[in-house]
Design a protein around this nucleic acid. Structure first.
Lengths: 253, 253
DNA sequence: CACAAAATCACAAAAAATGTGTTGATCATG
DNA sequence: CATGATCAACACATTTTTTGTGATTTTGTG
């Protein structure tokens, strides 16, 4: 392994873990601590990390934390667990819908594990990932591109969904309160609703930290979902509301 | 410049030119021929090029020649001229449709020169290029992705087009004979027709070598186009047919 | 403040990349 | 098909880059 590769690997670890340990890196890459010191010095010079005693961390408050890649990987482990659970609902040959959002993007990429499949999505990250995959029939829902959500929305998207049918739709939301799911954007809500209407069943993916939150627009009742998957145990209040409503929550571990 | 960078640069040149000259590379990168030999050996080992006496070429018949990037750059100059001419028909504020094909991809990328614009397209290369451009409202026409044409087609695409209107549609074809335009693929023809139907006027882009050819499916009569742009003088026979039909051909120089 | 752990520095060692001269192969051509 | 010329391959020398080691300084902590 060469110098450049090692430094790239260090960056990857940093993005994943938020910090790295010097001794650990030396052991992992089978080089001396001095070499790691030099690597970290160079990376610090490049402005992508901050050296601390015994290792390095991502510089707080820089462009790094707001980087799309960063956020995506930061909570990568929990998304992996959630998507692993979601993939159990998919069988080869099915037609699957995937909505916008970074969790959905991770799921979309992993759909290759279940091919052959037909995948319908408005998520630009999923489109990019599956475009050239053999065994995946990719149907992109057009629409007006939104840089904020890295996906396509609008009348074109909704009209396309009216004409399509899927076996299952994977929906993710940033806010769940009581027995309802929410989203801050009107257009996004319409797209998600249209997906759910065109799918035989729907599955909700939601981060455990997103319980007990609301947003401007109500999406739907949680009873509309055949399955609800989260990454960790939510608050007692949230759990009580769900059991009272007769909804089963799958916690991916 | 390091070894890896140089090898990447060699690949870029290869994609652009189709072949590279050993002496030329040695001069360009200010290294000995031996070093270039070693670079080419490694790249050949990696299977991305074929060494020939005095240089290297893209391996014939491999995935390379059919690579989209390759074909696109291959005849770059003539496409630049054609698209320059086409851009004269575009004014800031307009809504523009761009169809599939590598010429259309070049045009699509250059539409930023006329922003603000609304761009409607099923061409994946154009979508990728314009997605994050400020001043461009991008409406992707969804559809089933076709790796062969690097674009989206099918009922979803056609349905989306029914709902949209544009000021001008840029259409490209691989075959023109007499007063008619042709394409080998049924679905592609339907998408192009739908675009033309949804645009106030249409402009045809066709390489001069594509005159006097036919393909399985007829697209439409050339009289349907407000402008026809080509890159060089076509055959006398082709020209006579056009003038007899009362169609004006713009030759981009 | 003392002490241990960590960082830095300077220099040596190792590895990788590149250049040079020579030899053997291939090409164009008369 | 013989021949000069050009190019590719090889082995070895040289340069550059990368890495390791131990001495020395700095830093954090009780």
């Amino acid at each position: 392994m060469k110098r450049d590769e090692r430094q790239q690997a260090i960056m990857d670890l940093l993005v994943e873990q938020g910090s790295v340990d010097l001794d650990d890196l030396a052991t992992r890459f089978v080089v001396s601590k001095m070499t790691i010191h030099r690597d970290l010095d160079e990376l610090e010079q490049a402005g992508v990390l901050r050296k601390i005693r015994g290792g390095a961390t991502t510089e707080a408050g820089t462009q790094f934390e707001s980087d799309f890649r960063f956020r995506e990987r930061r909570s990568g482990a929990s998304k992996d667990r959630m998507t692993t659970e979601a993939l159990k609902l998919v069988e080869p040959g099915m037609t699957v819908m995937v909505n916008d959002g970074s969790t959905a993007a991770v799921l979309g990429r992993r759909l290759v594990e279940k091919r052959p499949l037909t995948v319908i999505t408005n998520n630009a990250a999923v489109i990019d990932a599956l475009r050239d995959e053999a065994g995946i029939t990719l149907i992109a829902l057009g629409g007006t591109y939104s840089a904020k959500f890295n996906a396509y929305f609008g009348v074109v998207t909704e009209c396309a969904l009216e004409r399509l049918r899927a076996d299952i739709a994977f929906i993710s939301v940033p806010a769940v309160s009581g027995m309802q799911a929410f989203h801050m954007d009107d257009e996004v809500v319409r797209a998600k609703r249209a997906m759910q209407a065109s799918a035989t069943q729907s599955c909700l993916l939601v981060n455990h930290a997103r319980f007990d939150r609301t947003a401007l627009h109500k999406l739907c009742d949680l009873t509309d979902y055949a399955a609800i998957i989260t990454d960790d145990t939510p608050s007692d209040a949230a759990r009580d509301a769900l059991t009272a409503g007769g909804v089963t929550l799958t916690i991916a571990n």
